[in-house]
Amino acid sequence: MRVVKSLAVVVAICGGLAYYVWDYNTSPTGGKAKAEVSASAYAEAHDPEIGDCVKIKDPKGEPLPTVVDCDSREAEYKLGEMVPGKNMECGSKYDYGIQYHNGQKFNYTLCFTKV
């Protein structure tokens, strides 16, 4: 009897784990893993690194940089420097600056030159 109860507990745990893995990766709504990848891709597309080219959505309102290929017609600016700190200014060699906070890193200013 004890063996049967132990076996039932093991089967229930394995079944629950299998269902979690299945649901995480293949649920009809796209799966949690796909949603996490999509959110990560969105963050990566809007979090440029030095040397990346970007196009800027709403440059005079709430600017949002989107990383694009430097050879594309969409490329407007190239990121030259990231100045840490809130309300920092870009040097005179830069054409455009954005005060930026991506939610995971601290506040900083993105400094761009025209492409």
Results as ranks from 00 to 15, higher is better:
Ala39Asn: 09
Asp71Trp: 03
Lys78Ser: 08
Ile56Ser: 00
Glu44Val: 11
Pro84Ala: 11
Ser38Thr: 15
Asp69Leu: 06
Leu79Cys: 09
Tyr77Pro: 05
Ala33Tyr: 11
Tyr42Pro: 00
Ser40Ile: 09
Ala33Arg: 14
Asp95Pro: 02
Pro84Ser: 13
Ala39Tyr: 05
Ala45Pro: 04
Lys78Met: 12
Asp58His: 03
His46Lys: 05
Cys70Ile: 04
Glu76Phe: 00
Leu79Met: 10
Ile50Thr: 06
Val67Phe: 08
Ala75Glu: 13
Ala43Glu: 11
Pro59Met: 07
Pro59Ser: 00
Ala45Glu: 12
Gly51Lys: 03
Ala45Cys: 06
Lys57Trp: 12
Gly51Asp: 07
Gly85Leu: 06
Ala43Gly: 02
Lys86Phe: 14
Cys70Leu: 08
Met82Trp: 03
Asp58Thr: 01
Asp69Gln: 06
Cys53Gln: 10
Lys32Pro: 00
Lys34Leu: 12
Glu36Pro: 00
Asp95Val: 00
Tyr94Ile: 02
Gly31Trp: 02
Arg73Met: 09
Glu49Cys: 00
Leu64Gln: 06
Lys86Thr: 10
Val54Tyr: 03
Lys93Gln: 13
Glu81Phe: 04
Asp52Arg: 06
Ile50Trp: 00
Thr66Ala: 10
Ser40Asn: 11
Arg73Val: 11
Asn87His: 14
Asp52Tyr: 10
Glu62Cys: 08
Gly80Trp: 07
Ser92Ala: 14
Ser40Ala: 14
Asp47Phe: 09
Cys90Gln: 01
Gly51Ala: 07
Lys57Ile: 14
Val37Arg: 14
Val54Trp: 03
Pro48Gln: 09
Pro59Ile: 04
Pro65Ala: 08
Lys57Met: 09
Glu89Ile: 08
Val67Asn: 08
Gly31Tyr: 03
Ser40Tyr: 12
Ile50Ala: 02
Glu76Trp: 01
Leu64His: 04
Leu64Arg: 11
Val37Asp: 13
Pro65Phe: 07
Lys55Arg: 15
Ala33Met: 09
Cys70Phe: 03
Lys93Asn: 13
Ala43Gln: 12
Val83Asp: 04
Pro63Ile: 04
Gly31Gln: 01
Gly51Pro: 03
Lys86His: 14
Gly80Val: 07
Gly80Arg: 01
Lys93Met: 13
Pro65Ser: 05
Ala33Gly: 01
Asp58Cys: 00
Gly80Gln: 10
Pro84Asn: 08
Met88Pro: 00
Cys53Trp: 02
Lys78Gln: 15
Pro84Ile: 08
Val68Asp: 07
Asp69Pro: 03
Met82Ser: 10
Ala45Lys: 10
Ala43Cys: 05
Leu64Cys: 01
Tyr77Cys: 06
Ala39Leu: 12
Pro65Asp: 12
Asp71Lys: 15
Ala39Lys: 06
Ser38Leu: 13
Ala33Lys: 11
Ala33Asp: 08
Ile56Gln: 07
His46Gly: 04
Lys57Ala: 15
Val37Lys: 15
Val37Thr: 13
Glu36His: 10
Pro84Arg: 04
Gly85Ser: 05
Ala45Gly: 12
Gly31Pro: 01
Ala75Leu: 10
Ala41Lys: 15
Ala43Tyr: 11
Val83Ala: 05
Glu89Asn: 14
Lys55His: 07
Arg73Phe: 06
Gly61Asp: 04
Ala43Ile: 12
Asp69Ile: 03
Ser40Thr: 15
Glu81Ser: 08
Pro48Met: 13
Pro63Cys: 04
Lys34Asp: 14
Met82Asp: 05
Tyr77Thr: 02
Glu44Asn: 12
Lys34Arg: 14
Asp47Ser: 15
Val54Phe: 00
Lys57Asp: 14
Tyr94Glu: 04
Pro84Met: 03
Gly91Trp: 09
Ala39Glu: 11
Glu74Gly: 02
